[in-house]
Design a protein around this nucleic acid. Structure first.
Lengths: 344, 344
DNA sequence: ACAATTAATGTAATCGATTGCACGAAAATA
DNA sequence: TATTTTCGTGCAATCGATTACATTAATTGT
């Protein structure tokens, strides 16, 4: 019921009739303590089940061994997997991961960062929200000297490292794959270009068309939210306006799913009449009766690498210089049923 | 580059030529400070952009406003959603959530808890790993006087609160639904009974059969891991041994999915030849071309309630008594395509 | 006008660990 | 033997905020 009184170095020092300073030095294996006392201290520390008080240490040293991760939503598979990657890499080094979600809201994002800074975390990992335009709250982190690492969704801020996916390449490959399968009239249902990732996917799509001498048709370009419903609406819009197309490259698996629903509802066969490629390799894509071709992003790896960049960064900070490291991971196309024309 | 020097109450006290004690009292709105100084302090605090040092406060008060959440895997939708619920409830009260994953490994679980305790968190939420049998490491938390709340997967320990789903009821309803649809030969592919949840789901299944005067056939009872592959294997096993069945109630959506794959591969039609019901309402279940009937668990709500129980607990601890609160949430059956016989 | 309250502020200890400086004792050197 | 090193410890300040207790100043009552 009542708190067990914690054992401190003073308890050890009293028991052995030596000063707390010596105990501290012994526990830290300082070479200024005799072997005899060192062993004695270590022994009694074990006996009394001494646990170092992390708070006192943090107050003194300024390091908490806590890092913060800020994401739009933690129960989105992608972000949860990145967090897992970070956690797996940092946990063995004694770090704890504090997670925060912004619900795609800048104000929330700014507030979360503020409280994280106040909690004296040793570093921050962030994937910015869709609504983030001003980056003042992010620059503040950098200016306080706290290591900051962007992952997936970044902003261009000098002196900040980032780990991202090569969205351009992923989109280019996906589009090229559709072209090679014989599709020539490929629609692109993308997302808001305020987020770099969607801009890059768009660019990759355009580049692939041009590389294969296909015309770019503005009618085939849409920007929608990343939901099943938005996908349904997008395809409805295309059909209603009699815009003809024989394939869809979607910047979101959810949108692709919605789109396929609507296409089937209108009698279109996939992949015979319309080929479909999504983006993200969401877990559900491979469980569909007709598994969806999609671009995979290796989120766990992304988290691990972000963590490694952080670890490099803190040793650099000690040396009092800042490196700006930009890591770009290659995506992988998972070629599945929805984009393979029969007999080809 | 270099750390901005943090502003402390001493900076304020120097600037105003008053003692740090008065500053502290003013900031805490004590009634032992004159209104004049109070305003003055508040004003200069804002001017200097003073931020309370959470570490110093934690060291003094023993409260860190951090809580720990221990789950098997954080990128499983269910757990991620529970965490989200906890986070949403506690964040407005100034708490931070520290997450840890055990990878279904007791040793890891024990270690995580140990380091959490050492970080002086204010409470721990835990869903135990599959391999957890001894509960010493968990009792230690209770004995240290740290509020502890089980969610979903619990162990019976006196003096510890829990928030769970009524798995019995969920299984009972799912099975009853199949019976009402006209299925009479229902197999149950469950999980290891070491986890209470699987035992309860099994019990619910049995109870439903008995309530409808259906015989319990041991051949129709399997225990497997919660994976697609295990589902495939399970159905293969049933078919190979010529065990006839016209429905499957699975304790896992993944297993149900694998089972359906294998059934279709063998020419069975779902739901005409075999009805299928899963458990968990994983996101993918509703995106299947033939959406899966499944039992939903309201994980976000579970997290929120767990958080509320925690908040009650800490006020109780102050009053120096412990309440053991057991909250059991009702699951909800999502009736979808895989269990509705045509024309019925 | 003087004692008794009350109001406002200051002093110093505390939370637990770390660390520069100082001190005494033993060992090495002259 | 006298003197300088070296070695092991202890003292006390520090990190930043809180709070019991002490102290001073202002106010009230008689």
């Amino acid at each position: 019921m009542r708190q067990k009184e914690k054992v401190t170095i003073y308890d050890i020092s009293k028991k052995l009739n030596i000063s707390a300073a010596t105990v501290s030095r012994a526990l830290n294996d300082s070479d200024r303590v005799s072997l005899k006392t060192k062993e004695l201290v270590l022994k009694t520390a074990k006996e009394l089940n001494y646990q170092q008080n992390a708070l006192a240490l943090a107050l003194k040293s300024g390091r908490t061994f806590n890092v913060g991760v800020v994401v739009p939503y933690i129960n989105h598979t992608f972000f949860a997997s990145v967090i897992r990657g970070i956690e797996e890499e940092l946990e063995p080094k004694g770090y704890h991961v504090i997670i925060c979600q912004t619900h795609e809201n800048v104000e929330s994002e700014a507030k979360q960062i503020k409280t994280l800074l106040n909690t004296h975390i040793d570093g921050i990992f962030i994937s910015v929200s869709k609504t983030t335009e001003s980056v003042k709250h992010i620059e503040e982190v950098r200016d306080e000297g706290v290591p900051l690492i962007f992952f997936d969704r970044k902003k261009d801020i000098s002196g900040v490292s980032s780990v991202t996916i090569n969205d351009f390449e992923g989109a280019y490959e996906a589009t090229t794959h559709l072209i090679q399968q014989g599709y020539t009239n490929i629609a692109h249902i993308g997302g808001d270009h305020k987020l770099e990732i969607y801009k890059h996917r768009y660019d990759g799509y355009i580049a692939a068309l041009k590389a294969h001498n296909l015309p770019v048709n503005d009618d085939l370009l849409l920007q929608v939210n990343s939901t099943v419903e938005a996908g349904i609406e997008a395809v409805k819009f295309l059909l209603k306006n009699n815009i003809s197309f024989d394939a869809i490259f979607s910047a979101s698996d959810y949108v692709a799913l919605g789109g396929m629903r609507e296409l089937r509802a209108n009698g279109f066969k996939i992949p015979e009449d319309v080929g479909v490629v999504g983006f993200s390799n969401e877990p559900f894509t491979k469980y569909l009766e007709r598994p969806l071709t999609t671009v995979g992003q290796t989120p766990v790896l992304m988290g691990q690498i972000a963590a490694q960049v952080f670890l490099e960064q803190i040793t650099d900070v000690k040396k009092n210089f800042r490196v700006e490291k930009k890591v770009v991971l290659s995506p992988e196309l998972y070629t599945r049923d929805t984009s393979i024309k029969k007999g080809s």
